[in-house]
Design a protein around this nucleic acid. Sequence first.
RNA 1: GUGAGUGUAGCCCAGUGGUUUAAGGCGCCAGGUUGUGGCCCUGGAGAACGAGGGUUCGAAUCCCUCCACUCACCCCA
Length: 416
Amino acid sequence: MLYRAPRGTADILPQKQAHWRHVEQVAVSLCQGYGYQRLDCPVFEDTGLFTRSVGEDTDIVAKEMYTFADKGGNSLTLRPEGTAPVCRAYLEHGMPNLPQPVKLYYLAAIYRYERPQAGRLREHHQFGYEAIGDADPAIDAEVIDMAWQFFASLKLSRLSLQLNSIGCKKCRPAYLAVLKDYYAGYTDNICPECKIRLKRNPLRLLDCKKSSCLQIASQAPRSIDHLCPECGGHFNQLKEYLGLLQIPFAVNHRLVRGLDYYTRTVFEIQPEGGSAQSTIGGGGRYDDLIEELGGKPTPALGFAAGMERIILNLKQQKIPIPPLPQPRVFITYTGEELKKEALKLAASLRKSGVSAIEATGSRSLKAQLRQANSLGIPCAVIVGEEELKKGTVILRDMTTATQKPVPISKLPKILG
RNA sequence: GUGAGUGUAGCCCAGUGGUUUAAGGCGCCAGGUUGUGGCCCUGGAGAACGAGGGUUCGAAUCCCUCCACUCACCCCA
């Protein structure tokens, strides 16, 4: 073998397609139900779009991007997340002039250069959606409700919704100062990474999983205690709305998310008892991002879920998946000459809307039927010499092993 | 980027007291009399034992390097 799929990528084989199509179909009908329209963006974008929006100091930008120069010398990057391209398209196509909020969804491949591991790939796929142009906490509630309903429709159970508010550019600096003050008393006790975080990205101190840091983090000042009145009101209303919608949530003071653009509401959905990297979906508000990308100040929020992780959980929870449609009829023949009749019959059946496969090669009838059986096709047609003289073929029901001669002209009707 | 484990046919794997046809199961193909599947029986194809190098008379089995996969850390979906 000369080549294999690149590290961290995976072929989605035919036997896995039922899961994929099912999750996609649930996602698409969910979006229709909430008034979201599909947007497909390019796989690569100007590198600046991501460095500017995601943040220079995030892991994604610092070490995980697939960045390359094209032949014109432009620096392009395979998208490492889905929100920034949607915002770019929102601005590029004048969507600020549409009635707000603009609601968009996507199903897209995402690229991050990481060490592959359970539930983590270099190329993975996300289903995500964004509501742009609305600051009302009611839209936060709707976005979270939609995520919750998505997993409910997939029949996934034992999920937990973690919620937090990390404030806005007005109140966060004061909170970060308090947080730094607190950690200043522990500089000798925190791990080396946290020492870097303290300088670069203090919010991230809160989600260090090292046991020593964990304890310090759990006692740390909480962002929700330092919200400005507007952010505090927003968060309180959101919680009220979620209660109204009967969505169970847990406020997690250490939930901060890894991208810089988040403001106010952040949330994550994880399987109960899952490990740190088992999050299947997450999102939040990003009220400054559109402005950062050159638009007018525009509040917005969104959510994204990992397809591979969803499917992993569907399998773990042994949730039955609807099978994909397959051909109804397998057409066999009893001799080389009759192959021509089989070929014509298959073509005419398809024209009348009956999906059909015909046997090929010069295999015995036994082998042909064996093939029909192993493909799981419910009906077999046998084109035989004797029957053909009378204008009939044998129709065999593979599930009951019964068969009878049927006029060829009536086949489409019987099978249709 | 760091750490640990693994690497034998399409899949699951036996075989490491060194040597000569590398075993089995699943799957695949063909037969089990004349035009018929699923069970059973028989037979067949399919592996230079991840790659390269080394030690040796001789290595899938020992040593080195590389690669890939898996898992964990970091971080995320």
